[in-house]
């Protein structure tokens, strides 16, 4: 039938155009990102570029607690254990650029191997030469003890929102959730070069694949970025991204439901109007 032939031509042309401006353009413009993802096999929750924890090394939480008291609390608070911050957050942000995190739950979201490496050499682990925390000259044993201690006190099974509040909110605001970044914007601008973007709809701006790769290894995706590698473990990162999706697209479920109803309605409409058309046109000369 002639009409169907015309329709087929239109469909083919539209599909060629669609393929050109969507998948093709995307694959060419985002080539460097896809290449980085392939090169480093992102997200890499094994943190392959970091040194492995020496075999046989066992962490002792008790010793870790003492080590934390020696090395960490001159900057960090551990509120859970009744240790308060040595200086108010504003003053801390003035001197470090960001507010140093409270250590109560940090062990619950970070990968063990990453945290071990981070304690030994923060700049290398975060892949950020400007990272505010200095290397402390810890021995392997001290580092693994601290890891064991932080893991032992941290809250288990944190929700996506808690992970994001723990891992991201020190620098990022989430305006639409009424969450304000802990560090003031002006000190962060000095420290990082720009105010970190708001996370309210970042999921829509960046997409899941990009976020997974970027959070896991920022320098591979956006060389020179001020964002440090945070070192979230697989579970924490997946929860965090699921939360970011949920807040950026809160009506996803309703959209699918309404969409199905509307399409079903229109399908019936197509049937009715087709019958009507046949009825009217049958009697034509």
């Amino acid at each position: 039938m002639k009409e169907l032939k015309i329709l087929a031509v239109i469909v083919v042309l539209v599909l060629i155009g669609y393929w050109g401006i969507e998948p093709l353009a995307h694959s060419i413009m985002h080539k460097h990102i896809e290449e980085a993802i392939k090169k480093y096999n992102l997200p890499d929750f094994k943190f392959s570029d970091l040194d492995p924890i020496p075999s046989g090394l066992q962490g002792n939480p008790q010793a870790g607690k003492e080590a934390v008291k020696t090395f960490c609390i001159s900057c960090h608070s551990v509120k859970k254990e009744g240790i308060n911050a040595p200086m108010p957050p504003q003053a801390a942000a003035q001197s470090f650029g960001v507010v140093p995190p409270d250590l109560s739950n940090i062990g619950g979201i970070l990968d063990e191997k990453y945290l071990f490496n981070f304690l030994k050499n923060p700049q290398k682990a975060t892949e950020n030469p400007k990272f505010a925390m200095p290397a402390l000259g810890l021995s392997d044993q001290q580092a693994i003890d601290i890891v064991a201690y932080l893991k032992s006190i941290a809250k288990k099974n944190m929700s996506g929102k808690e992970v994001v509040e723990e891992g991201c909110v020190r620098c990022h605001s989430i305006k639409y959730q009424k969450i304000q970044a802990l560090s003031p914007p002006d000190t962060m601008k000095k420290y990082l070069g720009k105010v970190p973007p708001d996370l309210s709809v970042i999921y829509k701006a960046k997409g899941e694949e990009y976020l997974h790769a970027f959070i896991n290894k920022p320098q591979a995706i956006l060389p020179g970025t001020g964002m440090p590698r945070v070192g979230l473990d697989k579970e924490a990162q997946e929860k965090a991204i699921a939360y970011l999706e949920e807040i950026a697209d809160p009506h996803k479920e309703q959209r699918t439901k309404v969409g199905i109803i509307v399409l079903a309605y229109l399908l019936v409409m197509v049937g009715l109007t087709y019958a009507w058309k046949r009825k009217i046109w049958k009697n034509l000369h």
């Binding site: 309605y265 009507w276 009825k279």
Partner: peptide
Amino acid sequence: RRDFLLYAMGGWAAIG
């Protein structure tokens, strides 16, 4: 039959 179709179509459009 024509009327029935017309009413069905109109009714369905009204639902929409």
